[in-house]
Design a protein around this nucleic acid. Structure first.
Length: 282
DNA sequence: AATCCGTCCAACCGCCTCGGC
DNA sequence: GGCCGAGGCGGTTGGACGGAT
């Protein structure tokens, strides 16, 4: 028996939890020499692990500047809004949360935020269901509003909704609803729709102001709690309106992917841009 | 006290991309 | 252009833990 002639003898790597001794070896090695080529790290550090495992351990646990413990409200909101815009791009989301790892954020999402979002969606659906069953005069375009809203809340946590929730005096506004209202305004379906969309847009402008305040708080937090790492952070440096524009553009992409691009007619994208392979060039 | 069950989180796995040859 | 190795990423797994029964 034994090894097949052509089979490479694979080194036996240790798996499972890391011991404090292993942590020390890895940390000392990287502090002294840097990681360089990860595949050579375990050899040089005297570890029975593979390079990938060392890299993961360093990034997720040993790296300096990691924040441990509970996520604060601000971090939670950042994750929710970024997840709404980016989807499961955990590493990109992690870039906006200094001291947090993609793995940590991913775990937090699956164990807590996902449930929270699902709950919100269900409550939204109940409201929509109640509205549709009580209204017999709903026309086809209103159905589109409903479908879009459901799509929006199903696939992505609603960023604007989260912002609106922070300001109790503002109405909750779904992107899809706002967009469709805009669309209806363009089609000139009714004078009321124009007034409503204006009112809603004004409401959204207020929400942006609200978010700007929130971003300011975030900035302060970032300087205080995160040791100024956020100064290089594009999310924080972007104005709230930029974030809003980006989220709108992303939403447009989502709409296109979902076959709803026809609903985007007449939507003001607040500037010129090109779309290529889901990348926006403004 | 023992067992069951759900949750959390560290770590693994597989896939993809990129760069060097 | 194809191959290979390294690095990076997201999905999944499995063990530890705590609460419920």
């Amino acid at each position: 028996m034994g090894l097949q002639p052509l089979e490479k003898a694979k080194p036996k790597y240790k798996k499972g939890l890391w011991s404090p001794e292993e942590d020390n070896k890895l940390k000392n090695h990287i502090v002294k020499h840097g990681h360089g080529c990860w595949s050579s790290v375990p050899i040089k550090a005297g570890l029975q692990r593979n390079g990938k495992s060392c890299r993961l351990r360093w990034i997720n646990y040993l790296r300096p500047g990691l924040k441990r413990g509970l996520f604060c409200k601000q971090e939670e909101e950042t994750i929710l809004s970024l997840h709404q815009m980016l989807g499961n791009k955990w590493s990109q989301i992690a870039h906006h949360l200094p001291g947090r790892t993609d793995n940590e954020i991913k775990n937090y999402w699956h164990s807590y935020l996902k449930k929270k979002v699902t709950k919100e969606m269900e409550s939204h659906e109940q409201v929509h269901h109640a509205t549709s069953s009580s209204s017999e005069t709903m026309d086809s375009s209103s159905h589109t509003v409903q479908n879009l809203a459901t799509q929006g809340t199903h696939n992505n946590y609603n960023f604007t909704n989260e912002v609106a929730c922070q300001s109790s005096s503002l109405p909750k506004l779904l992107f899809a609803e706002w967009l469709t209202l805009d669309h209806e305004q363009c089609g000139g379906n009714s004078a009321n729709s124009y007034d409503e969309s204006l009112a809603l847009k004004n409401g959204f402008d207020n929400q942006i102001s609200s978010f700007q305040e929130s971003a300011t708080v975030h900035d302060t937090l970032s300087q205080g709690l995160f040791g100024g790492d956020y100064h290089n952070d594009s999310l924080i440096h972007n104005s709230a309106s930029e974030m809003y524009n980006n989220s709108r553009l992303k939403f447009g992409t989502t709409m296109e992917e979902s076959g709803f691009i026809h609903c985007m007619a007449g939507v003001d994208f607040s500037g010129n841009f090109n779309m290529s392979n889901d990348t926006m060039y403004i």
